[in-house]
Design a protein around this nucleic acid. Structure first.
Length: 639
DNA sequence: TTAGGGTTAG
């Protein structure tokens, strides 16, 4: 007998009622009653549909109330209801079968618990508890929300047979599945090559591109600026006998907007009209974008009038496009006149137009006007988004309106809008400008702790100012944040921080910088560091510093040796270090000069006369070799 | 399951 599914069971309870004790022909089997009860508490009907089916696989009718059934049933609802479902899952892992997990997965999908769904899927994958329907459920639910994750899931399907099974079970990756995945690539940066990979897969699955899929692919081309590729697909469509619709034309037109290719755009409009397709709002707005990008502002203005008369300019979008294009082409006054015109007509606006105008004014350094417009915007639009807030904040910063800057920050706080990269950037620049260097430093710490990328130029400027104001430790901390955020930083910065650290006598930190970056630091700066370290660096590190300097190719001068050796002599307990240094020198081509030699001899009783004499004799031989080798190259050169 | 459009960061 076929395994009953709940739907049928509920409709025809008598078919499954094997318990003679249940006299009423309408009484439901006990299991169904339990499930109905569960349904009332678990909120989703979907869950209820699959549970008994899966249970029935292993629980023969006579044993419907088996402990294993009960355990699984309660495990499912426990996981579903748990505030920390992963730990419940971990605990109940041995009880739950793949089918049960699929039930939970679908429940998450239906109730919109996307994050949980993905976590559960990852867990199932990790524990090898996965079936064909896991994949298809996941793609179905995730695809609607998070396309790249859906694609990842699709790509994680281990073998062809699973994909074939999916097909057999009606869960096939068919034209629609592929199209769902492909649609996710629209507007994804660099989505084109990935989309093409997927398109390349189609023949292996016996799928032919249909008109809708061409629409999707063309949209991908358009949003990635691939106009030639778009043209090729159009050609392919024509060859295959597909007729072009407004979606196809619209995407092709959009692909021309990248370069502002208005000639091709005009030709396309003509072609489209010739097959009696009437340009709609989307087409006309896209055409406006092409004209603006192409710098055809007179025609843009005409087209905007056409949009107005067609009733397609009821909101601010097309005005915004034109204003922005004009201002970026340096035609601020023309942009302003569009703006005023739009305001005069009472066009519905959410504040974007203001935002565009404010930034345009800032770009032209008309800060007073920008500030005034920001004030107006603040009163007109109560709820501003982060970009608008940033734009206004920027205007106030540029105009030097400290009070307004603080007001904006307070506003963001109150509205629980968290600052983004730009907010931090704007503020830090402003604080530096106002010479509030420590505030700028605090802000950059905050920015870093929130995981934002640090921009080198900004850090470099702050490092400079902190250094100048004797905040060397803070400067070094900014340097380190930048250095350890996995970026290659410009060589001048190492040099810059080194000067700051030397100035602050933070020689140990300076040594770290030299050790890691000696090859990127200029010889005069290395020399400056070497001397400073010899004078007041930690005496125990003197030899190490000299070795690092030498190892980087730096030629250590006599002055440095002289200072180091004098320091050792003044601290006889460091005699081992002096002996090590003296022994190391000749091997590297260094010898002590006569005054240092005399100084050592004068104090040789502190270090052992014999030993000193022996070492210094090596220096003597060394000095002869050095003199000899200095004259040798001339001979070699002539030979 | 296919089309458009705006703003920050000197």
């Amino acid at each position: 007998m076929e395994t009953p599914v709940l739907g049928l069971e509920l409709r025809c309870p008598h078919l499954f009622n094997t318990h003679s004790c249940c006299s009423s022909s309408f009484s439901l089997p006990a299991v169904s009653v339990r499930i109905l009860t569960a349904a009332a508490t678990t909120t989703t009907a979907y869950t209820v549909v699959e549970s008994p089916a899966t249970v029935a696989e292993e629980a023969p009718r006579s044993k419907r109330h088996s402990n294993s059934y009960l355990a699984r049933k309660s495990a499912i609802s426990e996981v579903q209801r748990s505030p920390d479902f992963l730990s419940s899952l971990q605990r109940l892992a041995r009880v739950l079968k793949v089918q049960d997990l699929n039930v939970i997965l679908r429940d998450f999908g239906i109730s919109g618990r996307w994050q949980d769904l993905i976590q559960l899927f990852d867990w199932m994958q990790k524990h090898g508890k996965i079936s064909v329907s896991t994949y298809s459920s996941c793609i179905k639910f995730v695809g609607a929300k998070n396309f790249s994750k859906a694609l990842e899931i699709y790509q994680s399907i281990p073998d062809e047979s699973t994909k074939i099974n999916m097909k057999r079970d009606g869960l096939k990756p068919d034209v629609v599945t592929y199209n769902t995945l492909l649609a996710g690539f629209i507007k994804v940066k660099n989505g084109y090559p990935k989309a093409m990979e997927l398109v390349g897969e189609l023949p292996h699955n016996g799928i032919q591109m249909d008109s809708v899929m061409y629409g999707t692919v063309l949209a991908i081309c358009a949003s990635n600026g691939r106009c030639e590729e778009a043209e090729n697909f159009i050609q392919q469509m024509k060859v295959e006998g597909h007729s072009l619709n407004i979606y196809h034309y619209s995407s092709l037109l959009n692909s021309y907007s990248w370069k502002g290719d208005y000639k091709k755009a005009d030709d396309l409009m003509t072609e489209m009209k010739s097959i009696r397709l009437v340009p709609n709002k989307v087409m006309m707005t896209t055409l406006l974008k092409v004209y603006i990008k192409g710098g055809l502002f007179d025609r843009s203005r005409e087209l905007l009038s056409e949009l107005e008369s067609a009733g397609y300019a009821e909101n601010e979008m097309p005005y915004c496009m034109l204003m922005d294009g004009l201002s970026k082409a340096g035609k601020l006054d023309e942009a302003k006149s569009i703006f005023d015109d739009m305001k005069g007509k009472g066009v519905k606006s959410d504040g974007y137009a203001n935002s565009i105008m404010i930034s345009a004014l800032c770009r032209s350094k008309r800060f007073e006007e920008a500030k005034q417009l920001s004030r107006d915007s603040e009163t007109t639009y109560e709820n501003c988004d982060l970009v608008m807030l940033n734009t206004m904040l920027c205007a106030y910063c540029r105009a030097g309106e400290m009070e307004s800057v603080m007001r904006m920050m307070k506003k963001m706080d109150e509205q629980a809008i968290s600052p983004d990269y730009n907010t931090f950037h704007i503020l830090i620049k402003y604080f530096i400008k106002e010479k509030l260097h420590l505030l700028a430093y605090q802000t950059i710490l905050d920015m870093h702790s929130k995981g934002h990328r640090l921009e080198e130029e900004l850090c470099s400027s702050l490092i400079y100012h902190l250094g100048k104001n004797r905040a060397q430790l803070e400067a070094f901390s900014v340097y380190n944040m930048l250095r350890y955020s996995k970026r290659t930083i410009c060589r001048e910065l190492h040099e810059k921080i080194l000067h700051i650290l030397i100035q602050g006598n933070l020689l140990r930190d300076a040594y770290v910088v030299v050790k890691d970056n000696a090859k990127m630091i200029s010889q005069p700066t290395l020399k400056k560091f070497g001397r400073a370290f010899m004078i007041s660096g930690n005496i125990n590190l003197v030899n190490d510093v000299l070795k690092v300097l030498h190892g980087s190719g730096h030629k250590i001068d006599q002055v440095q040796f002289e200072i180091a050796i004098s320091r050792y002599i003044s601290q006889p307990d460091k005699k081992e270090l002096l002996l090590q240094l003296l022994q190391w020198m000749p091997g590297q081509g260094y010898v002590v000069d006569s005054s240092t030699r005399n100084l050592i001899l004068k104090n040789s009783h502190l270090f052992g006369r014999l030993l000193i004499a022996e070492i210094l004799s090596k220096h003597h031989i060394g000095s002869r070799t050095i003199i000899k080798s200095r004259s040798e190259p001339k001979f070699r050169g002539k030979r």
